[in-house]
Write a protein that binds this DNA or RNA. Structure first.
Lengths: 237, 237
DNA sequence: CGGGGGGTTGAAAACCGTCAACCCAGGTGG
DNA sequence: CCACCTGGGTTGACGGTTTTCAACCCCCCG
C-alpha cells in the first residue's frame, strides 16, 4: 500500500557490450537521439520511448535520474500505465525474449544500460549478484501488488490518496510538517495509472485541496499537509 | 492480457529441511491440519490458510494440485485477492523477511514446501537454478501486469471477460469449438479479484450467457462458446 | 496574436454499488 | 422422511459515483 524502500545503485558494474540501435526504434514515437554514444549512460527527453512492446529484450536499464513510465496501448486505443520507475529502479527485467510493455521517459531522464548477456554472465560468476537481482524482482512484485491493491480500491479518492502517499514516501523535501511532492507526470498520466479519467483526477485533487489535506502551489507540485488524513482516505472506503 | 505460458515442475529437487509448525499459525482462520507430516508435501482443505501476512517467510511453496489464492484484508475489512495460483505456480517468493499477503487454498489443494535456506543454497551451488528462479519471478511479474491491465479496464464486462479468458487459456477441456472452464472459486472470490461486487459479477456472467458468448451448465462451470467475442469484450469498450 | 497542450469546472447520463428479496442445494437434526 | 438452516447465487429497484461531453482558463511558444 505504501512505497517500497529505495534500493539505490544495486547494479554498479559497467558494461561495454556492443550497441544495437534497433533498441531505440520509435515508429510514430519520439526516439532517443544519442544512440551513437559509446557509454552505457543514456539521456532521454520527455515522451521519448526507451523501448516498445515486442522489442527484443536485449538490455535492462537502471533509472539514474528522472522518471520512466511503463505502459501499454489497449486494443481500443486507451493507454494504461503499469508503473512509474524512479532513480534506483530497474526497467526491462522480463522473462520472455521480448518486452511485454513500452517504456517511456516522463520528463528529462537518464538511464544506465546493462546488456542481458552481461547480466547472465554475472549471475554465473557471482551468486550474491543473482540473489540481489532476485531481490529486486521481488521488490518489483511488492510494488506491483501495492498498485493492484490501489486499483482495487473502489473510490477515486482512495486511489488518488494512495498515489500521492506513494510519491510522498519517495520525497525527501519537507516544508515544516508538510511533505513537498513534485508531480513530473501529467493528469493524463495519473489517470492512466489509476484507471480514472483526467477529469476525475482533477476533481479529486481539487477536493483534497478544498478539504485542506493538501496544498497545490503549482499544478506540478503538491504539498501534503496531513499524511495521516491522506492515509485514512487511502485506507478506509 | 492473456494467460502466461504454464511452467510446470521447474522446481524438482526435494528438500528435507526442518519443519516449523509456526508456519501454520491460523488465528481465527482454519489451519492446515497435517503439520506433523515428515514429507514436504502438504494437503489443504478449502479455506485453509497456507500462511498469513506478517508470517516469517521461511518457505516457498509450489502448487501441485488445486488452486491457491493470495489475498489481503484491507483496513476497512474488505478482502482483495491479489492472484490465483494454479498447479506449477510458485507461492511465497518475497524479498523481505515476512510475507506481504495471506495465502489460502480455494478448494482441496496440494502444495510442495521448499525451505528458503535450501533455495539460497541452490542458488549458490547452481547458477542455472538462479536463472530459473529469476525467470519464475519475471513470469509472476508478467501475470501481475496482465491483472493490472485487467483491473484498469473501465467496464465490469471487460474485467469478467478478461478473467474468463485467463481461465480458458489454462483449461485444456474442449466441447466441440467451445472451451470448458471450471470455476473452483466462488463469485465472492471473483469479485474480490476483479474489484467488483458479487452482484455485479453475477449480473455480468448472466449477461454473457444471455448474449450467447458463454454457457453456464452449472454455477461452477462455464463453457466459452466464442473466445473471439470474449476477447473483443475484454479488449475494446 | 493565434494556437495548442494541459488543467479545471459544470451538467447530464451511464454504470456500478447498495439494499433487499428470492431461489436452490446440501447438511443437520427432529 | 421432512423441516429447518445455512451458504452460495441470482435478480430487481434505487442511489451514488464516475464517466462523458462540453465550455472555459492559463501558460508557453511559434
Amino acid at each position: 500500500m505504501t512505497a517500497v524502500a529505495a534500493n539505490h545503485a544495486i547494479l554498479t558494474r559497467s558494461d561495454a557490450a556492443g550497441f544495437e540501435s534497433s533498441l531505440f526504434r520509435g515508429g510514430d514515437h519520439n526516439r532517443a537521439s544519442n544512440a551513437g554514444d559509446h557509454t552505457n549512460a543514456i539521456q532521454l527527453g520527455g515522451r521519448e520511448d526507451l523501448f516498445l512492446e515486442g522489442d527484443e529484450a536485449t538490455h535492462v536499464y537502471e533509472v539514474t535520474e528522472g522518471v520512466v513510465c511503463l505502459y501499454r496501448i489497449m486494443p481500443d486505443g486507451n493507454r494504461h500505465i503499469l508503473a512509474f520507475r524512479f532513480p534506483g529502479d530497474i526497467v526491462g527485467l522480463c522473462s520472455p525474449a521480448t518486452y511485454g510493455y513500452n517504456a517511456q521517459a516522463v520528463g528529462d531522464t537518464r538511464v544506465r544500460r546493462i546488456s542481458r548477456a552481461g547480466l547472465e554472465r554475472m549471475i554465473d560468476e557471482r551468486s550474491d549478484f543473482a540473489r540481489r537481482l532476485l531481490r529486486m524482482a521481488t521488490a518489483e512484485l511488492n510494488a506491483m501488488r501495492d498498485h493492484l491493491t490501489c486499483l482495487a480500491s473502489k473510490s477515486a479518492e482512495a486511489k488518488v490518496a494512495d498515489f500521492l502517499l506513494m510519491l510522498a514516501g519517495r520525497s525527501t523535501a519537507r516544508a515544516g510538517n508538510a511533505v513537498v511532492v513534485n508531480l513530473p507526470m501529467t493528469r493524463t498520466d495519473i489517470g492512466d495509472y489509476l484507471g480514472l479519467t483526467i477529469e476525475t483526477v482533477s476533481r479529486t485533487i481539487s477536493k483534497l485541496r478544498r478539504t485542506g489535506v493538501i496544498d497545490l502551489p503549482r499544478t506540478t507540485q503538491v504539498v501534503v499537509r496531513s499524511t495521516g488524513r491522506l492515509a485514512e482516505l487511502a485506507g478506509a472506503a
